[in-house]
């Protein structure tokens, strides 16, 4: 039997290298797909706009109206509607003497607490 030809070792090695590169590329593509999925899921889950929105609304009252009145109607409006429609718990308090606003938000996944002077 004729001896096996061992020419072209470089070609064989390049084939090896290319196949290894392909494996790594496939791994990267696979991971990137998962990353896109989990990223969009976590962005959907995170109540960014809810917190910004509730905060803006509380600040609006802080700037435009007297706070004593808000304690009764506004807090109840926010708490009832948030619990009913969004399943999130909201509390806020205007401290008249110190001029401090306390804001609390919790939707079961994300909790947000802030104590601020309201930018005045």
């Amino acid at each position: 039997m004729e001896r096996m030809n061992d020419d072209g070792q470089w070609i064989v090695m390049l084939g090896f290298i290319i196949s290894i590169i392909l494996v790594f590329l496939a791994l990267i593509v696979n991971q990137s797909a998962l990353v896109g999925k989990t990223t969009s899921e976590s962005v959907l889950e995170f109540p960014k706009s809810e917190i910004q929105d509730i905060r803006a609304e509380i600040m609006e009252y802080n700037w435009t109206v007297d706070h004593s009145h808000c304690e009764t109607t506004l807090l109840q409006t926010f708490q009832d509607l948030s619990l009913e429609r969004k399943g999130s718990v909201i509390f806020f308090d205007y401290n008249e003497t110190q001029g401090i606003i306390y804001i609390h938000f919790n939707d079961g996944f994300t909790a947000y607490n802030e104590t601020t002077r309201g930018g005045n």
């Binding site: 696979n30 797909a33 998962l34 896109g36 999925k37 969009s40 899921e41 959907l44």
Partner: peptide
């Protein structure tokens, strides 16, 4: 197969 799920979320 993963890509289709990802599309929906995005």
């Amino acid at each position: 197969t993963v890509l289709t799920q990802q599309d929906v979320h995005i």
